[in-house]
Design a protein around this nucleic acid. Sequence first.
DNA 1: TTGACTTGCGGACCGGAGTCCGTTTGGTGC
DNA 2: GCACCAAACGGACTCCGGTCCGCAAGTCAA
Lengths: 217, 217
Amino acid sequence: METHHEPAPIELGMLAPEGDLPVAGQAPRRRADAQRNHERVLCTARRLFAERGPQQVSMDLIAAEAGVGKGTIFRAFGDKSGLVGTILGDDESPLQDALIRGPSPLGPGAPPLDRIIAFGEAYMAFLESHLDLLLASELGLGVRFAKGPFQLYRTHVSLLVREALGDSDVDADYTADVLLTPLAADFFAYQRRGRGRSIEELCDAYRCLAARVLSGR
Amino acid sequence: METHHEPAPIELGMLAPEGDLPVAGQAPRRRADAQRNHERVLCTARRLFAERGPQQVSMDLIAAEAGVGKGTIFRAFGDKSGLVGTILGDDESPLQDALIRGPSPLGPGAPPLDRIIAFGEAYMAFLESHLDLLLASELGLGVRFAKGPFQLYRTHVSLLVREALGDSDVDADYTADVLLTPLAADFFAYQRRGRGRSIEELCDAYRCLAARVLSGR
DNA sequence: TTGACTTGCGGACCGGAGTCCGTTTGGTGC
DNA sequence: GCACCAAACGGACTCCGGTCCGCAAGTCAA
């Protein structure tokens, strides 16, 4: 796995192809101890999050267990949601890859509605398995929308919406945002836990929703 | 103005018609000093929130300015979002009233799609004027869905969706939830501030969305 | 090696939310 | 008026996320 970002904290872009150096030329190289700490923290955090849930794990605890100072974690990941986001990012990239290069209907080739539905279902599977982490990574208000992965999904769905609706005068960007909200962690958590919906129900409902929303006009 | 709730904190139901006593019979009466403090806090908080925005106002500051102890505020309102919610609740009740008893198309009488659109537009006006408070009241993750006012809106829209779709096998509750998400504070804030959309654009887009989502089948 | 330079370290520190509990005070029956 | 008691008070305290900055350690040129 490529490790990300060096200078300022706050990252998890995912959009950049690979490598972890800014442009070309001479790489700013990352110091050996930094690299080691980065991995230690990530590994410790993964374990603790899995053991007791992200809400129950304080940054102090992660620092102590990983044997590093608190400042080190914050320099490397910006803040708690950055740390969670980095962990999520690793698990999320196969999906992102499948969207771009994978087989139909998730990848290119299928009609847009089918692709949107395939994406919705695939993402819901991801939601189901990473719900607590996702909830923890969206702590800030409205911050979700500014996050790296969201941009990719937004672009993806927006393109598909445009393709599906042709040159209708429907607002494609807005439609894409609306189609993404049922895939937001808090919405999904409410449906699953608050209202006791099953994943099958939610997939059905999403399929039906997408079809109606994209019914040309 | 009627003041709400007494025993436990956490309230802002708004659903109960009036008065602030549970049922009938002997009211548990609220002590005079409690009543006075309640009003002082509310009044001070309103002022400070308006002056510098809810994010910039700490509970300590409110307590100090209102001349009460911090514990007093937390006992009365549960937590910061409860305090914000109470303030919002006061401003929100005219809208809630209009939904139930007001003139068409907001109130009863108009076709369901028209009523949903009217609600959307009215609520967006409220969003526009109370955005920072609303953002502050949704701090917890997914807590929004559990909040008092949301239940009312959910029921309202859900009923209208059912009416609009007749006995189609579309999931009305889910559809209602989806129609409510563009009215969530974070979504709205993202559109307005992050993407620079105007209220008119958002109203248009919402109208169009509602029409497509409710296009019978 | 060694020295100069720079990157990264880490824990003391800060501010804010929310809790706890000993103390005060308003209501009520006498 | 007085005594009693529950309701309410309020500020010290805890916990946690996040910052700061003096210091240690890695890197590189000579």
